[in-house]
């Protein structure tokens, strides 16, 4: 029996792909600064490109999900190639600090950021801030009807009309903040009351904003920056922000960085952190990602309530590290 034509096609494509594979393998073998980034390429890629040029340093980024990258760092242990971890939330940074996988950051860098937004031990700091907000459907809810605090969301008039994302990192921080502010008993009570009031679970923040836009729920507990992305595609998207005051619902979370213990280029990593805290980079976050600059004296994004007009509760992010406790409480309340 003669050989099949398919065999020849296969042999040809094998040779081609193996050649390509070797090309890819040979490509990446110079001394570079490696970032594990839980923030998306579209958001921080341009800034990293600028930093490469300005610092004259080769920087490479592995983009992924914050929690998954954090666990990968735990698994890699002593053999990680990462020099810097750029996370979406303080919880992931705090975990690595606790597991002693990070190095202390120079104090002149730490001091640029308000103590609320960095680790007390100095192993991580916030680069940009994101406010928790209530997004509401402007066609279905009048401004006068909006709740003045998140505790009102358990009222019968919001029955089945509120969406949240209980598995999401910033939601977890929000619940942890509530525990710090009001204690476990009251938090548990609130969670149970929300559940009894028919709150709807979503997988992530963007899905909530989308559902609020469709009118599937009237209110959603989310982060501030998603809405602008919907408005970009659809300027008539019928959703707006509503801010509460002084409660956990108004807290400010951060996206931030930690230096990994495995780095052999600490000076270069700190130069990069310094770069991220420069006025131009902070402005970049304000303008391009709609987040709040965390270095004092730099204005907030134009479309947003300035950070000093917000009324966040007085919580220190470094105190929000009891994630297992929060998970436990959420499970006790039957939320997870």
């Amino acid at each position: 029996m003669k050989t099949l034509p398919l065999m020849k096609v296969a042999a040809g494509s094998v040779a081609l792909m193996l050649g390509w594979g070797i090309g890819v393998a040979v490509d990446a073998q110079t001394k570079t600064l490696v970032i594990y980034s839980g923030r998306e390429e579209k958001l921080i890629g341009p800034l990293i490109e600028r930093a490469k040029k300005d610092l004259n340093k080769d920087i490479q980024v592995r983009y992924g999900d914050t929690a998954e990258l954090a666990i990968a760092l735990l698994e890699e242990g002593k053999n990680s190639r990462a020099d810097l971890f750029f996370a979406q939330d303080a919880g992931a940074l705090g975990t690595l600090e606790k597991k002693q996988l990070t190095l202390p950051i120079a104090s002149q860098l730490l001091n640029k950021v308000d103590t609320r937004f960095r680790s007390a031990k100095g192993h991580w700091l916030g680069i940009s801030g994101r406010a928790r907000v209530i997004d509401y459907n402007t066609k279905l809810v009048k401004q006068s009807e909006l709740p003045s605090s998140i505790s009102q969301l358990t009222q019968p008039k919001w029955r089945g009309k509120v969406g949240w994302a209980p598995t999401n990192g910033s939601f977890q921080s929000f619940v942890t903040a509530m525990r710090v502010l009001e204690g476990d008993a009251k938090t548990l009570q609130w969670l149970k009351a929300m559940k009894a009031n028919g709150v709807k679970d979503y997988g992530k923040n963007s899905a909530i904003v989308e559902a609020v836009g469709r009118g599937e729920v009237h209110l959603g507990l989310v982060n501030n920056y998603y809405l602008y992305r919907f408005k970009k595609d659809d300027p008539n998207f019928p959703v707006a922000h509503h801010y509460t005051s002084k409660d956990a619902g108004a807290m400010i979370n951060v996206a931030g960085v930690a230096i990994t213990k495995t780095t052999d280029q600490k000076a270069d990593v700190e130069a990069l952190i310094n770069y991220l805290l420069k006025q131009s980079s902070q402005n970049y976050f304000a303008q391009e990602t709609n987040e709040y600059p965390l270095v004092k004296g730099i204005p907030a994004p134009s479309k947003q309530v300035p950070i000093n007009k917000l009324n966040p509760p007085n919580v220190n992010l470094t105190n929000l590290d009891d994630l297992p406790g929060t998970l436990n409480l959420l499970q006790q309340a039957g939320v997870l």
Binding site: A67, E68, A70, I71, L74, E75, G91, A92, T95, T167, N168, G169, Q172, L323, P324, T326, L327, L330, L336
Partner: peptide, 14 residues
């Protein structure tokens, strides 16, 4: 799978 992901996502508990 959500229960598994929860352990990763909410308490980084591998």
């Amino acid at each position: 799978t959500r229960a598994i992901f929860l352990q990763y996502k909410t308490s980084f508990n591998r």
